[in-house]
Amino acid sequence: MALPFLPAEHIPSMFDELDEHGDNDRLDAVMAYVFSIWINRSVFSMECWSIFMKGVRTKNECE
């Protein structure tokens, strides 16, 4: 998923929109994992893992 490329305030609504379109058990399992670990947890704020408008932090831009 490319959610970290979005502004932090758009991530929850886009995640919900993507989750609505899931139609198989494997995708539902992945979405449940992402929700429980990344969206619904307070360990890492979305501002922390959103890379929207952040500079490249490596010498190799392909990484």
Rank of each mutant, 00 (worst) to 15 (best):
M1L: 11
M1A: 12
M1G: 12
M1V: 05
L3W: 06
L3Y: 14
P4H: 14
F5S: 09
F5E: 13
F5W: 10
L6N: 09
L6V: 07
L6T: 07
P7S: 10
P7G: 06
A8W: 00
E9Q: 08
I11N: 02
P12Y: 08
P12I: 08
P12G: 05
P12S: 02
M14D: 03
M14Q: 12
F15Q: 01
F15S: 04
D16F: 02
D16K: 10
E17I: 05
E17Y: 08
E17M: 05
E17G: 03
L18G: 07
L18Q: 07
D19A: 11
D19R: 06
E20Q: 11
E20L: 13
E20H: 05
E20Y: 03
H21I: 07
G22T: 13
G22Y: 04
G22H: 02
D23E: 07
D23C: 07
D23Q: 11
N24C: 10
N24F: 04
N24G: 04
N24Y: 03
D25L: 11
D25Q: 06
D25S: 12
R26K: 10
L27T: 14
L27K: 14
L27Q: 11
L27G: 10
D28M: 06
A29R: 03
V30C: 14
M31R: 12
M31I: 15
M31N: 06
M31C: 06
A32N: 02
A32V: 01
A32R: 05
A32T: 10
Y33A: 01
V34Y: 03
V34E: 00
V34S: 00
V34W: 00
V34F: 04
F35N: 12
S36N: 15
I37Y: 00
I37G: 01
W38R: 01
W38K: 04
I39G: 02
I39P: 03
N40V: 01
N40A: 14
N40Y: 02
R41E: 14
S42L: 05
V43W: 14
V43H: 11
V43K: 12
F44S: 11
F44T: 12
F44Q: 07
F44W: 15
S45H: 06
S45N: 05
E47M: 05
E47G: 12
E47N: 10
C48M: 07
W49T: 13
W49S: 01
S50K: 05
S50A: 11
I51H: 02
F52E: 08
M53E: 15
M53G: 09
M53V: 14
K54G: 02
G55T: 12
V56T: 09
V56W: 00
R57E: 13
R57L: 13
R57M: 13
T58P: 00
T58N: 02
K59L: 08
K59P: 03
K59S: 09
N60M: 01
N60Y: 08
E61I: 15
E61T: 10
E61M: 04
E61H: 06
C62W: 11
C62H: 09
E63Y: 09
E63A: 08
E63Q: 10
